[in-house]
């Protein structure tokens, strides 16, 4: 008997006009994994995230989370089941304080404000957000801090699966290293399963044990990082050369 996957998509299709942004994608993510999801621009990675979180409803195919079909559920129900995400471009709650923003996430599982606040503090501390940042407003902090706050807000919902979209974009090398460590820490200490969409190869290759490659809406390869990076199809996709 097979072990039930945490997340499973079966032949998911999402169209925009005539374009199949996601074209029959079937992937599965096991509990506790860190999976890298890579591919050139427009490969459909973010669209796939949007399908999983219910922002888009796929036209075809099915998505299962812990064996339960979530394909047509509204976002808030999907999040409640234990999926969270972050975006390539940060989406802060600008006019709320940082601690309030994280508390908003924590309120999903802690109805009382005080408890949620405590949870938010714990998550902030876990991610190494300094105390003095917490009182600042969302429009008064640096990009790196923004990214951590977005992560904290997502983690505060206590997800089993966290979808991370290009968290490395715009970070300096030192910050990138910190981010890699942070993602490892989230996975190890909180047991959160991560799916990481990334363009920065160093980040993907150093954290994921398994990489899925998408191109033009389809999965073209998956496997260990070193296998995938030697796969001729993948190289072609990235270099933009069509096989003759």
């Amino acid at each position: 008997m097979m072990v039930e996957a945490l997340l499973e998509t079966k032949d998911v299709v999402k169209r925009f006009g005539g374009i199949r942004a996601v074209d029959g994608v079937s992937i599965s993510v096991e509990r506790g994994e860190i999976v890298g999801l890579i591919g050139p621009n427009g490969a459909g990675k973010t669209t796939l995230f949007n399908c999983i979180t219910g922002t888009y409803t796929p036209e075809e195919g099915h998505i299962f989370f812990e064996g339960k079909e979530i394909t047509k559920l509204p976002s808030n129900k999907i999040i409640r089941l234990g999926i969270a995400r972050t975006w390539q471009v940060v989406r802060p709650f600008k006019k709320m304080s940082v601690i309030d923003a994280i508390t908003t996430g924590a309120l999903l599982r802690h109805g009382k404000i005080d408890e949620a606040r405590e949870k938010a503090r714990e998550v902030a501390q876990f991610l190494g957000l300094p105390e003095e940042i917490l009182k600042k407003r969302g429009d008064e902090i640096t990009l790196m801090q923004h990214k951590l706050v977005d992560l904290a807000r997502a983690l505060a919902t206590e997800p089993k699966l966290l979808l991370i979209d290009e968290v490395g974009a715009g970070l300096r090398p030192a910050e990138l290293n910190m981010m890699i460590e942070t993602l490892h820490k989230i996975n190890k200490e909180r047991g959160t399963t991560l799916v990481v969409v990334e363009h920065i190869m160093r980040l993907v290759m150093s954290i994921s044990k398994r990489v899925i490659v998408m191109h033009e809406g389809k999965v073209i390869a998956q496997g260990k990082p070193e296998e995938v990076s030697n796969n001729p199809q993948v190289i072609q996709a990235y270099l933009g050369i069509k096989p003759v």
Partner: peptide, 26 residues
């Protein structure tokens, strides 16, 4: 303002998509 509702209202005001993604039925 001091209730869960207040937090959720403000989150919706700030960014509706992000609010959906912390599980708020906007």
């Amino acid at each position: 303002e001091r209730s869960k509702m207040g937090y959720y209202f403000k989150a919706i005001r700030e960014d509706e998509l992000a609010a959906e993604m912390v599980g708020i039925d906007t």
